[in-house]
Design a protein around this nucleic acid. Sequence first.
DNA 1: GTCTATAACCGGATAGAC
DNA 2: GTCTATCCGGTTATAGAC
Lengths: 219, 219
Amino acid sequence: MAVQERRARLIRSAFTVIAERGIAGATTRAITAEAGMALASFHYAFSSRDELLSTLIAEAVESETSVLDVPTGVDAPLEDVLVAGLRAYLEGLKADPHRERAMLELTQHAVRDPDTRALAVRQYERYRMLARRSLEAAAERTGSEWLDPVDVLAAQLVALTDGLTLGWLVDEDDARAEATIRFAARSLAARARRAEARSVQSRSTARSVADEGRRGERG
Amino acid sequence: MAVQERRARLIRSAFTVIAERGIAGATTRAITAEAGMALASFHYAFSSRDELLSTLIAEAVESETSVLDVPTGVDAPLEDVLVAGLRAYLEGLKADPHRERAMLELTQHAVRDPDTRALAVRQYERYRMLARRSLEAAAERTGSEWLDPVDVLAAQLVALTDGLTLGWLVDEDDARAEATIRFAARSLAARARRAEARSVQSRSTARSVADEGRRGERG
DNA sequence: GTCTATAACCGGATAGAC
DNA sequence: GTCTATCCGGTTATAGAC
């Protein structure tokens, strides 16, 4: 087996194990067993367990492709579109809670170590970038425009989804999550207004951004 | 040394070690060293490391006394009072980031184990109860009344502080945190209006609740 | 390259001297 | 009760046979 292939399989297995048992449970034995290979094969691909963890965090960050899915082809007010997007995010979380737990644990692990801290910072930069795309897409599709810089609102959206995630992971209360979603959507929508008429060129430009934002899937 | 005294010291030391090195770094050796006692003394107070961790989580939950400090004796609009309270929370977080990191890690650890999961749920119930007190105090002092059930808004406040906390812990960006605080305060204040005139009795009752809410300190 | 076997180490828990 | 010394299981990492 090629070294790159082995590395990829080990990283994938490591994420699975971490999602199920946490970082503490992600021993080299557990990871290689999950990957169906001998323990000794591990050090043929990685020099140490720490090296695998750092690589895993970096890969996990890049694999995150959307913060929330803005529904396509809807004709609804901005607030409803945001509610729909946040509900889609929650559905992804409910479908695989362990995944988000693992991301959370990996982020906190990375932040503690000065050598990997930058990876966590990069992860959040990426979250905000993806959130920004979603907000731009939502505004464009509903003919709205944001009253605050989209960068700033993107950070608020990330904070809102983090709060939603932590709360749901603890008590798994769907009704409370729904209330949080409505509150988040209302709060964000309050920072937008109906857009003035735009030129055709600007609308088509924005639509291509929106399509790109839709590309990723969560979960 | 009395067993209860030893237990208390070990719990305290364990929290210190977890804050500095994480749960993974909180070995019985590290904990007893931090407490300045011999390794063997550990099992005189606790039957196992797991028992200490469960006890620690339970104690940590109860020691949380406020989600945000609503400033006393101010005469300002509700939104400004909320901003001040959230800033006080952020200052506590900045003064001791490791403390909140430890709480986060303990919660996630508790949630994974069916035997301790209830502790995490209870922790969030307590957060919401404290948030509710803060919101009631803030409304009372500014002559406002909430448009949604305070229980529901308390859950939103907890979600907002969770989002604020996670974001700040990763990049320690004070400017972004300030923007999140303003957004949070504005979003919550939008769910209140000026209260109608109240009777003297109802005001004095509410003031005693407010004083109770102020009792706790964070950090 | 891949596996078995093992070295080297670490952590929780305990025996036993005092 | 308290400490030193030790056991024992589990983990990372590697040596060496094939």
